[in-house]
Design a protein around this nucleic acid. Structure first.
Lengths: 255, 255
DNA sequence: CGGGTATTTGACGACTGTCAACGCCAGTGG
DNA sequence: CCACTGGCGTTGACAGTCGTCAAATACCCG
């Protein structure tokens, strides 16, 4: 199976670059420095995950949670018919996989690595301990969920009310803003580790239609793409096409 | 404005029926009896809200949170174009409107009463106090958000991957299961306080098409409806049409 | 260089949106 | 009591978006 431990490699020790990202990561970002040592106690280690492997799978009972340090991860749900929905593209700093211990509930979705990834693993029980002992962390976790939920709500609204072209434009802008915070945008070029099938699964259209819409955007001079690089040539116009307010949108990303 | 205080009426004292519902409501349900007195201290009162009034509005900075005691509420988001997405139908027991105090963030959505409603109001600051002082409550709040988020993810998947007919069938089953827990289903009949426009806004299709699909379902002998009453005549077949597993779905409702 | 994967394109059709008209019903005011 | 009105649901005709199927091309990795 893809998600067994053989598909991931433990990394020791922390490289400086990764250590630096820790301070940025979602759960601990706003918490005081004193907590850092404390949470280090509970950290179980970092793992490297090859592209296309499942980190965890829908239906699986998880007793771990993860912070994504490096790479892109797609959170997905699959229907009995085989259709797949991409719920969210997780980027470095995102918190993955935590579910409170309500009766050993299985995970509601899968996480699959889109690139080589590095994750930091926490046993779920220690997350619970931390939440119990540290009201700051509890509050922060509530904020994280609140943020993700607002993001889900945007996603629902987008899929429910916008056209294919609008949804794709919005997805690109969303990634642009989130990557900017991670200093991964150079000028108007950003990395894009998604296939057109991934894009389609994220916004609820087929990959064939994604190709058609992306051609329209290209021919309108709004985007340019090649390999894993995407250039947004006219951000303002793209936002207008998508029907979103760029300032508001940039401020409302969950991370 | 619809959301000003003139549109709601304070209710005193608690009627026994409402008092009984308190023990069921989302935030406090699993918390020990000793907490009940304590949280009563923070409760600010109950209000009656006429149908079609906004309880709170997207963009508004909220300093209150609500528990819905009676009635139906639609949580909605409106696009600049005027298109509206119904994010969730809140039923009695649901917890509404709480957002952690991240820099006075405005609400991401609106809440509108679909029927006459009774809500219990909490000042937001007291929710935060409670979360800080009671780890059990913090954990419960995290669970609530987790549950809502899993629900949002189902919603995204449904809108993104299913046909109009499947989405409508799924919506009806969702309401059926949630109303069953509230003992509001008699045989196969349940109340339905949604217009076809509401239904369409919830599943991302137009009200005209809702009408067409509901006719198909009616002519297939799956549903019957009149006024605010809906009968699901063949639950199993409806689940098959929707492409969902009824047992799993019934168990996964957020409330 | 070769084989598999991803993208592109065309043709066609189904599903869904739009526009418009009509009927039904409840509430309102005369 | 009855006509009036507005909201909601229904239906038909038509158009456009998007899905499906199929084939060709481009691309990447070994």
């Amino acid at each position: 199976m893809a998600q067994d431990s053989s598909s991931r490699t433990r990394i020791e020790p922390l490289t400086p670059c990764i250590e630096c990202e820790i301070r940025e990561h979602a759960l601990f970002r706003p918490v005081e420095q004193t907590l850092l040592d404390w949470k280090q106690r509970y950290r179980q280690g970092q793992y490297s995950i090859p592209p296309k492997t499942q980190i965890y799978t829908e239906g699986q009972v998880l007793d771990e949670a993860y912070t994504l340090f490096r790479g892109w991860v797609a959170l997905t749900k699959t229907l009995p018919t085989g259709k797949r929905q991409v719920l969210r593209i997780a980027l470095p700093g995102d918190f993955l996989g935590y579910q409170p211990n309500q009766l050993e509930r299985p995970s509601t979705h899968s996480a699959v690595a889109l690139t080589e990834c590095v994750v930091c693993l926490f046993p779920r029980s220690s997350v619970e301990t931390m939440v119990f002992e540290q009201p700051d962390l509890a509050k922060r976790l509530i904020e994280i969920y609140q943020g993700y939920m607002a993001y889900c709500q945007e996603h629902i609204t987008s899929i429910g009310q916008r056209s294919a072209k609008q949804r794709i434009a919005e997805l690109f802008l969303d990634l642009l803003y989130r990557l900017r915070r991670r200093a991964q945008v150079q000028g108007n070029r950003m990395p894009l580790y998604l296939t057109q099938e991934d894009i389609g699964d994220a916004v609820g259209i087929t990959s064939v239609h994604v190709s058609r819409v992306m051609r329209q955007l290209r021919e309108a001079g709004l985007i340019r793409y090649k390999g894993h690089s995407l250039a947004l040539l006219d951000e303002a116009e793209l936002a207008r096409v998508a029907g979103v307010n760029p300032e508001r949108m940039a401020g409302a990303r969950p991370d």
